[in-house]
Write a protein that binds this DNA or RNA. Structure first.
Lengths: 243, 243
DNA sequence: AAGACAGCCTTACAACGTAAGGGAGAACGC
DNA sequence: GCGTTCTCCCTTACGTTGTAAGGCTGTCTT
């Protein structure tokens, strides 16, 4: 859309070959950019179209600005991703702040499941969290509170330390799923030579299908599986704590 | 380096402004490209300079070919990454094939630690594994054998299924470490306002430092932590199995 | 009034993945 | 023998990406 100036000084654009539209300044003088606005727009784009859609130009367009303008508020694209991680971790921290529970285990469980519920709103975020190398303050803070919870609950710091490692990304509410092993055998159109190569998975899925014939074959209840693994770890830690 | 033809028909290149070098075909007629060669070269590049150095042009250069030539053996770059995953998973399967152990737990433990030892040679690989969405045959096969191991050891398929989820990426020998929480408080140059914000981590690291004053502060023994988490899960599963 | 400064834009470039088509040599039918 | 086909590989080119360098236009300060 190219702007022109008529001889009376007014600015106009050609809407159709026979229709010009004179421009009068009517919009408010545009709220200025800021690191925070950039990061929030980045999250909105990733929520809508995935991280691969998150480019500097697209980000600028969403903010009604030019790509290079962003660089006055953000160091570079990596800085955007680091910032996004920090904002989401902050969101999580805000959500878990007021959690209280009778035992360390119940409290940890609720914190983690709450964190998970936030990741469910940003399905692209786990991959970004996992990919970042810089330490996010909010992520550190999240783990700090978790350690505090365990320490107050009777953990030695040493055991709490191991506990963090044992939980891994599960502490933050997601477990990096490489792929869904059930997919391989679940669909009916699985080639027979592949089925023959993985008899145990085929057997497993057959049994699961038998137990619950109504369920969609080969799909797993993510929430259930997540809680299963989480409880496995938490129960193991509880046993170590009282040992 | 531009090739020219002199009037006697010989091909030559200009090495310096005053020195031409006639070309005589001396190298063997170059082993032809193949999907396998491409994938192996890709792994070699990633091993040497990281995945971000793995571009189609760089890959072609390593194979003494042009970028577009690769597309006759590989669908596109995603296909390269999928293939790389499959090759490495195959490497793992080959390494764990002959493992035998008295109990399912010992066998699973050894398989997983063996897989881990291979990832230690390809530090960039976990991120690629985690990022891929396509199912790799070799990865499926790896999990299939693990399920078989558990089933033979007395697991119901249902429990084995949950076990896969509980192990997550640990089943393959790596646990996605978001960041090393110890980094935040370990170094002496941590800003005081940050230290004040994460008192539990600071306390934890102080105690760990006290217990083991000789160790480098804030660093963790990855191997130990990995085995700690792995055993936590395996012990929990063993308890469920016999329940 | 004049200079400083913040905030945004324009232009430009190197590197990326890859679409489209060309060309050289081997293999093969006649 | 010769033309055809097929297999590999290369050349050229395009659109998109992140971002370096510098210019423009206000507002604020002195």
């Amino acid at each position: 859309m190219e702007e022109n100036a008529s001889n009376d000084g007014k600015t106009w654009v050609l809407v159709t070959p026979h229709l010009r539209c004179t421009i009068t300044e009517v919009s408010a003088p545009r709220t200025p950019l800021s690191r925070d606005r950039v990061l929030r727009a980045a999250i909105a784009i990733a929520d809508a179209d995935g991280v691969e859609a998150l480019t500097m130009r697209r980000l600028a367009r969403a903010l009604d600005a030019e790509a290079m303008s962003l660089y006055h508020h953000v160091k570079n694209k990596d800085d955007v991703l680091d910032g996004v991680v920090d904002v989401i971790a902050g969101e999580i921290n805000a959500a878990v702040e007021h959690i209280t529970a009778p035992t360390w285990k119940a409290a940890a469980r609720e914190r983690i499941l709450t964190a998970r519920s936030i990741f469910l709103r940003h399905p692209w975020a786990p991959a970004v969290f996992a990919g970042r190398t810089a330490v996010s303050f909010e992520v550190v803070r999240y783990h700090d509170r978790l350690v505090g919870l365990m320490h107050d609950g009777g953990f030695s710091y040493d055991l709490a330390h191991h506990a963090l490692h044992a939980l891994g990304s599960r502490a933050l509410g997601f477990a990096q799923e490489l792929f869904d092993p059930g997919d391989a055998g679940g669909n009916a159109d699985v080639p027979p030579e592949l089925a023959a190569a993985v008899p145990n998975l085929v057997g497993m899925l057959a049994e699961v299908a038998h137990d619950d014939p109504g369920s969609t074959l080969g799909w797993c209840d993510d929430q259930f599986e997540f809680e299963f693994g989480l409880d496995l770890v938490l129960d193991g830690l509880e046993r170590l704590r009282t040992a």
